[in-house]
Nucleic acid binder design. Structure first.
Ligand SMILES: [Mn+2]
Ligand SMILES: [Mn+2]
Ligand SMILES: [Zn+2]
Ligand SMILES: [Zn+2]
Lengths: 137, 137
DNA sequence: ACCCCTTATAATAATGATTATCAATTGTAA
DNA sequence: TTACAATTGATAATCATTATTATAAGGGGT
């Protein structure tokens, strides 16, 4: 249950927190290398796993793509852009979902759930419009 | 938009339909081999992709695990067992989620969403209980 | 039946993300 | 300071999936 806060671990955590984004392991690896040029990608993966197991960070497993990590551990949901892959938090009232109401179904004991939205982010939409305007000339 | 219904494609589709399960590509491969011993795993993957693009079957991308395929294409949600990996349909009233209500958020144009429950299925719970009873002796 | 063209197949290589291995290093506590 | 456990960096291995490619069907039109 306990865990040592190594310098690698600390920098990885701090970079994730400061980013205010949902980063992948290799994105974090690139950032952390600026401070620790000799760090290994495996160390980044290992520590992200350790941190998420300890509940210090969250691990996002979005439909068929790379894992992303989240410094914000309070229960919340996400939306991802089908075009640029970015992942953002989304305001969704989780009280609307009542696990107890579906619990009897198939005899499962439900331990959690998540709501995953997908769509096109504003910057990708802007790019599309620019492109379309250009084509019309 | 059109597509030929080859014998491989037909058997893969029929096996998925008859299974009444959410099978993975390699599970289907094992089943289809009984009828077509020379079929290639790549053919199974290729056809599942083609069929799902044509909207004839659904593709389920569950949190960080193998893709599963679904002969039932009507919009519905799923629950998976953390222990044995099985995936079942779940009764969840999708009217409770209103994409328009969260659409303004971050400027996304939302094109879809899914609700993913996780838990322990009844047979895995029974196994746990049996095991616990045994330990108490 | 034959030719042509497109699509699909089987076999296999390649890819990408993640995890495993392991010898070397570091931290901690007696 | 020694002794042990935890961690690291480097790299190999794994797993699911996709790409490649030479070969084989499918289906008109003749
Ligand atoms: Mn988040
Ligand atoms: Mn289903
Ligand atoms: Zn985007
Ligand atoms: Zn189970």
């Amino acid at each position: 249950m306990h865990m040592r806060m190594t310098s690698q671990r600390e920098i990885i955590l701090k970079e994730l927190q400061d980013s205010h984004q949902h980063l992948t392991a290799d994105e974090l690896y690139e950032r952390v290398k600026k401070f620790m040029p000799r760090i290994s990608l495996a160390t980044v993966y290992r520590n992200l796993e350790t941190l998420s197991e300890a509940g210090i960070i969250g691990k996002l497993e979005i439909s068929g793509r790379q894992k992303r990590f989240d410094a914000d551990v309070h229960p919340h949901d996400h939306i991802f852009c089908l075009q640029c892959q970015r992942v953002d938090n989304i305001e969704f009232d989780r009280n609307l979902v009542n696990p107890a109401a579906v619990a009897s179904d198939k005899g499962y004991r439900i331990t959690g759930y998540r709501v995953e939205f997908k769509g096109i982010c504003s910057s990708c939409r802007n790019n599309q419009e620019k492109k379309r305007d250009g084509d019309e000339q």
